[in-house]
Design a protein around this nucleic acid. Structure first.
Lengths: 222, 222
DNA sequence: AGGTGTGAACGAATTCACAGCC
DNA sequence: GGCTGTGAATTCGTTCACACCT
């Protein structure tokens, strides 16, 4: 789909974070040294990353902030649209028309955390994620919550995910239900899961999972 | 204090996750093959990890679940304080605490997400983290929220962190305030930060940071 | 000078291969 | 036969060294 080049995982992680940095960066240009100062990454690493994605617009004088941001977003398959969507900038080598389809996602598990995410500004910033649904096994929970998003009992998961063309899920259920729910999500057609539970999910190779358990993170900073 | 051996970061991550798996595992024994099935990690990797931490109780017949859990927790410096203490003392009071060297933490930024974390069961499971304080620059926010935890305006951060002997922080502020708040936390004596913002924090080498931005995670599962 | 681009060298992490044990 | 323990081999990621640009 988007993945023009095969980017190493470590580089992908840095690039995603770099997009956020570039968005906040006020100045026109930015050097690898400056990025290094702001992040703690080595200058070489940054240049190497950009080399890997075939960026060669720096030419000894630093990178043009917006141009770099554009390129990285392209390569990662995330849209930056938002602020400067002057798509009319020709010159670029983007022969492949990046389809501007927003990414639809759902939140599975509407406890305190999941419910908070419904209102979190996930679609903001300028990345186009659309929260299309929230699910919970507890039907009362679904009814009680007020939100601008549509909430459903978990029993309707399969149906709703297909109808709304949802491809990604944030999993915030109890640990004991995590694997079961992941299985159901995958069966319904989900291809990427942000796993906020504390368990390791076993999924097919084709499914991408990112683990961001708060408890695990705490144990790692000890 | 705990770090008996110098464990590679990749191994540490797996071990933390493995503790969760072992806690949920019902059977007495577990093999590397079984762990592999449950997680997707390679069998060799698992055995190698255990070898690295000097575990050698497996001897060709699988590992004893509880013994292994104990050992890993020890090495990682996280207490397991017997999650299955239902063996004899069935009474609700689990005050049987082993080595109550609890880790004190605070939550910085009491938006929807931060507020949700106050009530999240972070200290549960069996890892002893104690949420000692919540901070927000918005003093009204602090006053409005009800919780069993103590909330303070950010201006009192330095004082409270020292008084309560808080060493770890979960950062859930707005991106633009992230670095500033991190700096203040570090100045106040914090040594580990779980960074839930979307920015990369620049911190001294002595400070541990784990990044668990939901937005970044979403971009990585695309 | 101060910056990028790029392959080679180095170090970290994973996998392989096989010895040893039950 | 099925399992763990362990060094070696391989793959992956980072850093170095230096050519080149402006």
């Amino acid at each position: 789909m988007s993945q023009l080049v095969n980017i190493p995982e470590a580089t992908r992680k840095r690039l995603v974070q770099l997009t956020n940095l570039l968005k906040l960066h006020q100045e026109n240009k930015i050097t690898s040294k400056k990025i290094s100062e702001l992040t703690g990454w080595s200058e070489t690493s940054i240049r190497h990353d950009l080399w890997l994605i075939g960026y060669n617009k720096g030419v000894s004088n630093g990178y043009e902030t917006q141009n770099l941001l554009q390129k990285i977003s392209e390569v990662l398959g995330i849209e930056t649209s938002g602020d400067i969507s002057n798509n009319s900038n020709a010159a670029g080598t983007d022969q492949i028309s990046v389809k501007n389809s927003g990414k639809n996602l759902c939140i599975v598990g509407l406890g305190r955390l999941g419910a908070a995410l419904l209102d979190e500004n996930l679609t903001g910033g300028s990345s186009n994620f659309h929260i299309k649904a929230g699910f919970d096994t507890n039907i009362y929970r679904v009814e009680i919550l007020r939100s601008i998003y549509s909430l459903y009992p978990a029993s309707e998961m399969n149906f709703v995910i297909k109808r709304e063309n949802i491809q990604y899920a944030i999993l915030t259920v109890a640990d004991k239900d995590a694997q079961t729910m992941a299985d159901r999500l995958i069966k319904a057609g989900i291809i990427g899961i942000v796993n906020m539970t504390n368990v390791v999910l076993k999924v097919p190779d084709s499914i991408k999972v990112e683990n961001i358990s708060i408890l695990n993170a705490l144990k790692l900073v000890i």
